[in-house]
Design a protein around this nucleic acid. Sequence first.
DNA 1: AGGGTTTGCCAC
DNA 2: AAACGTGGCAAACCCT
Length: 562
Amino acid sequence: MRIAVVADGDGGGWLAELGEGAPTTPVAPVRRVGDLVAAVRAAEQAGSEPPRWVWADTEDLYPDLVRAGVRVARCHDAALTEALLLGYEARHSEPHSLGAAWARLHDLPVPDDPARPLGEGTAAQPALFEADRSTLPPGTDRLAALVEVHADQRRRIADLPEPGRMALLAAVESAGALAAVEMSHDGLPWRPDVHDQVLTEILGPRPRAGERPPVLADLAARIGEVVGHEVNPDSPAQVLKAMAWVGHPVESTRSWVLEAVDHPLVPLLLRYKELARLHSANGWAWLETWVRELPGEDGEPRLGRFQPDYVVGGVVSGRWATRGGGALQIPKSVRRAVRADPGWVLVRADAGQLEPRVLAAVSGDDALAAAAAEEDLYARLAVHVGDDRERAKIGMLAAMYGQTSGDAAPLLATMRRLYPRALEHVDAAARTGEGGGIVRSWLGRTSPAPVDWAATAAATDGDRRRRAHGRFTRNFVVQATAAEWALVLLAALRQELPKTPEGGGIVFFVHDEVVLHVPAQLAEETVRAIERAQTRTREILFGDTPVRFPLAVSVTECYADR
DNA sequence: AGGGTTTGCCAC
DNA sequence: AAACGTGGCAAACCCT
């Protein structure tokens, strides 16, 4: 059963039960409810199977439900689905909100998508569903508009050459939106005291605002001594001058460029850059901005939560982006601060070598699939290639990224001979991209067309951009399908996981790994659920492929432990 | 002073 | 060893 829902901005809303057939029309009179939370909770628990909620935008409705303690099993996110369908039609740049979709159906002026500023996610205070971001014209029957757009989207999906794939993509994209709100609400367990301890060990005691930590100040002073005058190591321009001044001019101050230079200044600069990065990106200021402390008992360790806003579909390839806090790039050095609450554990599931496995599955290359049936794909590749594992890996990555320089060329020739269908799959995608065409993932997510090359005057520059776009489409067919694998896994996990208390469940997701926070006594059951989800993911996406997608599952107290 | 761009590094 | 895909972010830099 599907239920379309809109909020009234005052805690209530309207519901319309929809038929499952296409076109989907209401099968019962519209129901007005005064307490939307209660109505959703009741519908979720009634009947043998929970409904699929049809709504304009998960980010508008679901955070309030989650805050109120309600979780739903399934939804159809009209905005995300519209974006997928527009993309399929090579119309990426068109607005995808409910209002925009409805306006197109009625040949009316299409409104821009609403901007979604930082901090609008679940960390914000309760809003009682007040925001109407649907961009529908004032006075429009919003429920009728939603029902109409949903029916249109289902028709457009049904009319595709492979409707099942796009239907699955829309479903897992929507499930991802649910998971994103839930994760953002729960947050990644983060110990402020441990983070502070890590910073103090590495940088010295916390300085006053605007000052360098002691270790950085000392390094800057020693750099100044070696050069003979004061240098701001944070300024690439000053570092370039300083290197020239000491007789070692360099083209840039990138660390691998500096590493090649033999001069006492270099280790000081490299050390400074490394520590300055930690201080500016994940230092005390970051901790205060992004980690919310939970109320706690005196004498107990302070517990915190890192609650980034996830942007589902925020990357063209279907990977998620995040807003604020740099959640997808938590450096290894501060992962010690990610610790389970007392009595709880972190269960981490990490997909190994996902992209080459995806390539094996989508290309149907028997030899690569045979390698991908193994736990360590690269080790098997090395046997095929007759080289060491590291070089086999470089060759594979070169094929998927379009690398041509370095020692990739001979490796690529070997790959092309051993895995002809796999290489042809990415080579064809690259040719399409170079020709200005679009490519699609396994489920139909579509690459955006290149930005107007004709506007580029110089032929050489145009050529460079054409090749760059070829590398993009080459990678897209793999990366976008890997993102789909991860979305299906998330959706399967939501179905398989045991019920956990508040603060438990999936708490972090980054491209090909998930972190769960569960009471220790649920650890075993959680691991079994992950294994079921993993198997289902492969079957749902690729049927009976020989390719395996191993998940390394570990149960730890700390994210830094493996 | 404030906005946009560049540089460089972090993650997968 | 360093040019090979997707991003976010902070500080310096450059312009108005």
